[in-house]
Design a binder for these strands. Structure first.
Length: 421
DNA sequence: GTAGGGTTAG
């Protein structure tokens, strides 16, 4: 009863109430168990509140005498990895081993995924017996050896993470090999596997192969066909997740991929297809499409789509504003820039470094009157000028002197607080 | 019963 409520609260990220419920159940003599703590610890980790998660881990072990299990440790390891706390993740793995708890395939998958996404695995290597030093991918593979040693075999998730690693490093040949390897091992690629592969193929411009993969997905029934769509939609509303969620993601990948390959006609047709099938484009779909239209200079069409978003239940977000703004600036269409900036200011949206950079260029070229400076200043977050920020370099190109000269900010100084300038 | 993989600006 309590556990079910705690699980529900954690699912909606209401940690505070979940924790008070934990205390309440304890006071009422209903002892929390490993499951209760696992649920709360994982939820805290997912909210990046790892120190709080450790507090409950200690409470569980030292005060309540409950032994943590593989799920407790895996959740904590995942939390540490996702926060980039690399020194602590392997310590946790070691602690787990010392505690006599064996990691399982899911524990390894957490580590493999982290390896594939980050380069900083030096400390982790010591604990997962990594012998090879031939770059990040082989590090991940050597974890496979370690897994096999323990009698744990990679599953489709393991391979999909590695596939993602290969695709992100543009090693498409290895990715393709791995993809075929999955089937050879008797494992079934799923929607995520296909999506990863599709994304990778587009990234290296292999649209034909991407198309083949898409057709294969259709053939395998990953996507809804026209006859099943109604049924699937009602199911979607009932469950709130499932394959249909993936469908719009697949289309978004396809639209983005096609337009980046210079095939805007295909992208447009796909976008139309989404609507025809009764699927709803989400923010990502719209942003990808607007970006694609701008890339080809079709700023008018991009604006039209933007306006459509404003009327829909999927209003533009700050990314949409930035994409459209960049589209206008790159195509030297300045008429709507001011109104867009004003609206961004109203909505509390801010500019990013690349958009700001384009704006400053336009100001320098004399494309705007002086009132624009105030607007730009309003929508520029102060962190953009901070030393540690990666975007600082892009600003250094023209330097503070340039900002002074072009924008006339003669008294400009770095603000101390977090607010916009 | 509770833990793991893919999705957009640049």
């Amino acid at each position: 009863m309590y556990n079910t409520m705690i699980k529900g609260l954690c699912k909606i990220s209401n940690n505070v109430i979940a924790i008070s419920l934990l205390k309440l159940m304890d006071e009422r003599g209903c002892k929390p168990d490993c499951f209760t703590y696992n649920t709360i610890i994982d939820s805290l980790c997912k909210d990046k509140l790892i120190d709080d998660a450790f507090k409950f881990f200690k409470e569980m072990v030292f005060q309540k005498g409950i032994s943590p299990d593989v799920i407790t440790y895996s959740s904590l390891i995942d939390g540490l990895c996702k926060l980039g706390r690399w020194d602590e993740a392997p310590k946790m793995l070691q602690e787990m081993l010392d505690d006599g708890i064996s990691p399982n395939v899911q524990t390894f998958n957490i580590l493999i995924d982290a390896c594939c996404k980050e380069g900083k695995v030096k400390e982790a290597e010591d604990f997962i017996n990594i012998m090879l030093k031939r770059g990040e991918m082989s590090k991940a593979i050597s974890i496979f050896d370690s897994m096999a040693f323990r009698g744990i075999f990679p599953n489709v998730v393991t391979y999909s993470s590695l596939l993602n690693g290969y695709c992100k490093s543009l090693n498409i040949e290895e990715a393709m090999n791995l993809f075929h390897e999955i089937t050879k091992k008797g494992l079934k690629p799923n929607v995520v596997t296909y999506n990863t592969m599709l994304q990778g193929l587009f990234r290296v411009g292999r649209c034909g192969d991407a198309r083949k993969h898409f057709d294969e997905m259709l053939a395998k029934g990953f996507l809804c066909n026209n006859h099943k769509i109604e049924e699937a939609l009602s199911l979607f509303h009932l469950t709130g997740d499932g394959k249909l969620n993936s469908d719009i993601a697949v289309y978004t990948i396809l639209i983005d991929g096609a337009s980046k390959c210079g095939k805007l006609d295909i992208a447009t047709a796909l976008f139309q297809d989404v609507t025809n099938k009764g699927l709803h484009p989400d923010l990502k779909t719209y942003n990808v499409m607007i970006s694609g239209l701008c890339r080809e200079g079709l700023v008018g069409d991009a604006k039209e789509l933007f306006l459509k978003m404003e009327e829909s239940d999927c209003p533009p977000n700050n990314v949409t504003y930035r994409v459209l703004l960049q589209g206008y600036l790159k195509n030297k269409r300045y008429d709507d820039v001011q109104i867009l900036l004003e609206r961004m200011d109203e909505l509390g949206y801010s500019l990013d470094a690349s958009t700001l950079s384009l704006l400053i260029d336009a100001v320098a070229a004399g494309s705007f009157d002086t009132t624009m400076s105030t607007l730009i200043a309003h929508t520029t977050p102060h962190w953009i000028f901070s030393e540690s920020s990666e975007v600082h370099n892009s600003l250094q190109d023209f330097g503070y002197r340039f900002v002074h000269k072009v924008l006339g900010w003669s008294n400009f100084s770095i603000p101390a607080d977090d607010t916009a300038i």
